[in-house]
Nucleic acid binder design. Structure first.
Ligand code: FES
Ligand code: FES
Lengths: 168, 168
DNA sequence: CTTAAATGGGACCAATTTGGTACTGTTTGA
DNA sequence: TCAAACAGTACCAAATTGGTCCCATTTAAG
């Protein structure tokens, strides 16, 4: 329902490793092995993160990726933004929020903004350093498990409340 | 990136109307007309909300839907839950969070939970009464616009931050 | 008792999105 | 010169989503 897509989840898992050695330079294949994820996927993700300015990349032999900033200066919100991009804008909000002729008079839009703000704040509150993963020894990797954290569940009012971070 | 799907957005818009006359009984087609949404879609949504216990339904001629509770006692979180359902559980969290053998030792899972909690709280903080929509007179309906609130944008650190409530 | 207006519950389909792979180029250290 | 590594992009299959249609059931009204 509130979904963070798979690649973004992978991204946090990868950044979690990198956050443990903030100065080190990691190759895509190396990270892929450590997480048990397919190489091309990790490569794709790292490219995206580099494009987003979260990682610095070094090309050529002995190259790789390293954190562009301090591990606790990179929030989950930023990771998500980097992975999903600014997104093609359409309809109501196209152009920055004023393009919809009804926007100003529209109660719903302001309330959604309020919610979005709250969510954004929550996401900015957690850095990748905090996500840094001391995984159990027998944790072979995300791939075998499927994803790291598929879904987190809360029970609210007797109903199962599922905040998907995947589509199950 | 953090997406609330179309139907759920529609649902809030519909409930916004109903919240204005909490005692009234609304037919699916009537609500569809008032929002300019396709009838079958509204019907589908209302059924779902009724199944979720948010609406009371009355069958037969002169039947329809009415709020099961006070308008300010129904939160957006509940709407979302009703629309998306408990979701098929898989892998890591299947069964309630303990099924994944690594779960207990897994730093990532606990941090995602933290984030999820924060988001959940934000969503429970807004009731459909607050979303109740005094739309501008010339607001013909959501359909012509596309969705009500397609996307809400924040600018964070110079980058465009887009919290999609749709896929653009 | 018949009919019409409603909901209930599906199946169903097209379009989009997502997850993942592959390939071709470029940079760079040894 | 060569191999390791990133950059970019095209591509494909599977899943999800948005939406329609259909038929059964309930119920008020004529
Ligand atoms: S219809 Fe565009 S902001 Fe509400
Ligand atoms: S791998 Fe299952 S909870 Fe982290």
């Amino acid at each position: 329902m509130i979904r963070i897509n798979r690649e973004t989840d992978y991204a946090t898992a990868i950044l979690g490793i990198m956050a443990e050695e903030p100065e080190a330079c990691f190759s895509a294949t190396g990270l892929a092995e450590r997480r048990g994820l397919p190489g091309p996927v990790v490569s794709k993700i790292l490219k995206q993160l580099a494009r987003g300015g979260l990682l610095h990349s070094q090309r050529g032999a002995k190259g790789g990726y390293s954190l562009a900033r301090d591990a606790d200066a990179i929030s989950i919100a930023e990771v998500i933004m980097a992975m999903e991009g600014p997104i093609a804008l359409t309809d109501c909000i196209e152009g920055g929020g004023d393009a919809c002729q009804f926007h100003a008079h529209c109660a719903l839009s302001s309330n959604w903004s309020r919610i979005n703000d709250a969510i954004y704040r929550a996401l900015q509150d957690v850095s990748i350093k905090e996500m840094s993963a001391p995984l159990a020894d027998d944790h072979q990797g995300l791939r075998d498990m499927g994803r790291h954290v598929r879904e987190s569940l809360d029970v609210a009012g007797g109903r199962v409340m599922a905040f998907r971070s995947d589509h199950g």
